[in-house]
Each structure stands twice: as structure tokens, then as C-alpha cells.
């Protein structure tokens, strides 16, 4: 009997090792388990992720508010998490054959987000963007911001190589003598930037911190300290989102986490998205 048990154990151990070594054949966990790590990385290919358990989260349609998707697209996002006690990093990976990072009319960007309640409470906020008095915090990554951070110029020619621009008023030669006046003039011709809209570039990181208290209430959160980096994989995206460990999360106190993915080629933007329900986030 002991031999049989030993053989079974060896088999399970072998299966787990095989799963780990083959990446996607890992046995998914029902929760997101944040594993202690010595360092936090933005690199989705870093060896630190190798033995971290993966959670496979099924994506479902946003179905609370219009406008919404009527046809499902991305089916699943695979999530790993590590923490060094101060910071927590999430590695999200999903299949997406098309890379959508060139903004234009009717062109939408690949994107993903991680959502957490701002407070750990017995009853979690509504999973779709929280609810009044029960705020959620969101770290949102977008493919075109990644391209800008990776070096794409903040110029129309970077989006349309054959574009021809004669002249912008803020590039008038007399303004060359006064860089401050030039900067002011450029702002005047870019109202969203002048108002400090966090959607408007140029960007230093591909991630935006947000809070919400229900659909339609999404608001930038300047106090947020998320960062991230996304890379293309053989069949989609792998991104890492980092942020401070949620307040109150500990070895004995789990919290909730939810994910969303936008498939640009499917016209997904805003409320037109694939999302998960709440999943437990545990410290390991």
C-alpha cells in the first residue's frame, strides 16, 4: 500500500513538474496566489514567474450597461502574482492574434485591467466597476501607451507614415526664441492635454491608475502608483502590472480581485469589454 501511495505521489509530482516546465499546461489554481519573491519585475519573461501558480480566469461579457458587447471574444486570462511585501505584481497573459496599438478613428486598442476593492470588507463591492460608497481601484494597461513608452514618437507620422503636415501654429519660427510660449501655444491646440486629461499623452508609463464607484464613474487616481509593461507573445499578450500591496492584504486576510480584457480588433473599448467576476487574492 505504501508503495502504491509512493507511486501516486511520484506521478503527481512528475505531472506538476511537467506542467510547470511546459508553461500553459500548469494546473490552474482556483484563486490568485501572490507568492513571496525577493524582487518585483516588470518583465513578463523573467525567471521569477517560473514556479508561480497560475490562475485561469474565465472572461465573460460586460452585461450591466449599454453600450455593450453582444458577442464574446477573449475567453480566458491567465494570471500569476508575486509580492515582496511592499509591492505586488500581476502577470496577465491572454491569446490575441492581432496587435492593436495604432489609434485612429474606428481603431481600438488592446488593453487589460486589474480591479481591487479599495477597502477589504466582508461584502465586496459590485464586481462591475464597484458601487456608490464601495470604491474599486483599477490599474489599466493599454497597448498604444506601451508603444509610446517603447519609443514610438508622439507625432501623427508615427500613426500615419504617409501623413503630410505643412505647419502647426505652435511651431511658428518666432516661438523658437521662447520655449515657454511655445509650450503654452502647443497646449492651446491640444485641449485635453491642457486640462491634464490622463488619457492624453505623452506618456511616461503604459498604465493608468483609476478609481470607480459604479459604471460611468471611472476617475483618474493621481495617488495611485501602478506601473506595467506588456510584450507580445507567440499568440497574444503577456503584461505585468505592479502596484503597492492592497491595504490590509496579509497571509491571514485575503481580498478580491477582478480582471478585464479589451480586444481592439473586435471594437472593444470602455464598457464593451470581457471581464471576470471577483476572484480571491491570497498571500502565500
Amino acid at each position: 500500500m505504501r508503495e502504491v501511495r509512493y507511486s501516486v505521489s511520484v506521478f503527481i509530482l512528475s505531472a506538476l513538474m511537467l506542467a510547470v516546465s511546459c508553461g500553459k499546461t500548469e494546473v490552474p489554481t482556483p484563486d490568485v496566489q501572490a507568492v513571496a519573491a525577493e524582487r518585483i519585475t516588470l518583465d513578463a519573461n523573467d525567471a521569477v514567474w517560473t514556479n508561480v501558480p497560475v490562475h485561469a480566469s474565465r472572461l465573460i461579457l460586460q452585461d450591466l450597461v449599454e453600450p455593450r458587447l453582444m458577442e464574446a471574444s477573449t475567453q480566458e486570462v491567465r494570471v500569476k502574482a508575486i509580492t515582496n511585501g511592499g509591492q505586488i505584481a500581476f502577470r496577465l497573459e491572454w491569446a490575441d492574434p492581432s496587435q492593436n496599438d495604432l489609434p485612429s478613428p474606428k481603431m481600438f486598442m488592446d488593453a487589460a485591467a486589474v480591479q481591487l476593492p479599495i477597502k477589504i470588507e466582508a461584502s465586496a463591492p459590485a464586481p462591475q466597476m464597484g458601487e456608490m460608497g464601495k470604491t474599486v481601484q483599477i490599474s489599466y494597461w493599454r497597448a498604444d501607451w506601451q508603444a509610446i513608452v517603447d519609443g514610438r514618437a508622439d507625432e501623427i507620422k508615427a500613426l500615419h507614415p504617409n501623413a503630410s503636415v505643412d505647419h502647426y501654429p505652435f511651431q511658428a519660427r518666432p516661438l523658437d526664441k521662447d520655449p515657454e510660449a511655445k509650450a503654452r501655444a502647443e497646449f492651446r491646440y491640444s485641449p485635453a492635454r491642457a486640462l491634464g486629461n490622463s488619457r492624453s499623452g505623452p506618456r511616461e508609463k503604459p498604465v493608468e491608475d483609476l478609481i470607480a464607484e459604479g459604471p460611468g464613474t471611472l476617475t483618474p487616481n493621481p495617488a495611485g502608483a501602478s506601473n506595467g509593461k506588456g510584450i507580445r507573445t507567440a499568440d497574444g499578450w503577456a503584461i505585468v502590472l505592479t502596484r503597492p500591496v492592497p491595504e490590509g492584504l496579509s497571509l491571514t486576510q485575503p481580498t478580491q480581485i477582478a480582471f478585464a480584457v479589451w480586444e481592439g480588433s473586435h471594437g472593444e473599448t470602455g464598457a464593451r469589454k470581457m471581464r471576470t467576476g471577483w476572484v480571491n487574492l491570497l498571500m502565500k
Binding site: P105, K106, D154
Partner: peptide, 19 residues
């Protein structure tokens, strides 16, 4: 770009540089 989609006169425009 929901407004771009919704306006029948197509008089709302998406600015890709400001998003």
C-alpha cells in the same frame, strides 16, 4: 468613440493624439 458612432451627422471626431 461612442459619440462618433452615435452622431448621425458625423460631427464628432476622434483625436488619436489626445485620445
Amino acid at each position: 468613440q461612442e459619440c462618433v458612432r452615435g452622431c448621425p451627422y458625423k460631427k464628432v471626431f476622434y483625436n488619436a493624439m489626445t485620445g
